[in-house]
Design a protein around this nucleic acid. Structure first.
Lengths: 103, 103
DNA sequence: CGGTATCCTCGATGATACTG
DNA sequence: CAGTATCATCGAGGATACCG
């Protein structure tokens, strides 16, 4: 019953991806070329390591992000948007436009 | 510290409006001319009366919706998007477009 | 550097009964 | 019809310590 409508609503799929306190902010930062874990951690001041790691892992599972490890010393990790993730850009920029108008 | 970044992020204002399990779905339904409380309740199958009422009240406080009461018998209540709320349309339609592509 | 492992808190949401 | 009032739950997120 609940499942029916939630799955049926034409915006539910994107809600499943961007919901959460930090998720859309993470996506925004990555879309702005803040691709490294440490860079994200710095930009998203106040986020816990646990939450950032959890959200990144979920987005990876959802096919929104790819995770690339560079065997430097110390190692660095980079997150990049997949095609599916890049296609969220219109959503993110519409969000930014509204925010600029009404903040 | 946390406040700084959250307030500073260029998409934070819209996140404050559309976050929550049901909020963007409510906005979608209202944008699709499901304006009556009972109509919304029917479309959003599975939502509790408490949650629907709470979210509508919050959206009203945020200036996204106007609440109109018609003194019919029994009374009916209609929720309509303000200009600020209507300006969320690009966000909602971008969400729908992505959802159609990747659901 | 880029996480994982634990424990804990708190607020959003749900269920239900009731009301003008 | 359109809610409000109460109580209960549940999981996202935070704090902290530790690790390869």
């Amino acid at each position: 019953m609940e499942k029916y409508t939630l799955e049926d609503c034409p915006i539910q799929p994107v809600v499943n991806v961007i919901s959460g306190k930090w998720t859309s902010l993470i996506l925004w930062e990555i879309s702005q070329s803040h691709n490294h874990y440490g860079d994200l951690k710095r930009q998203l001041e106040g986020i816990s390591t646990r939450t950032l790691a959890t959200r990144l892992k979920t987005l990876e599972k959802q096919g929104i992000l790819d995770r690339n490890v560079f065997p430097t010393n110390p190692p660095t990790v980079e997150y990049v948007l997949t095609k599916k993730g890049m296609d969220l850009a219109p959503v993110l920029y519409a969000m930014r436009d509204w925010s600029e108008k009404y903040n």
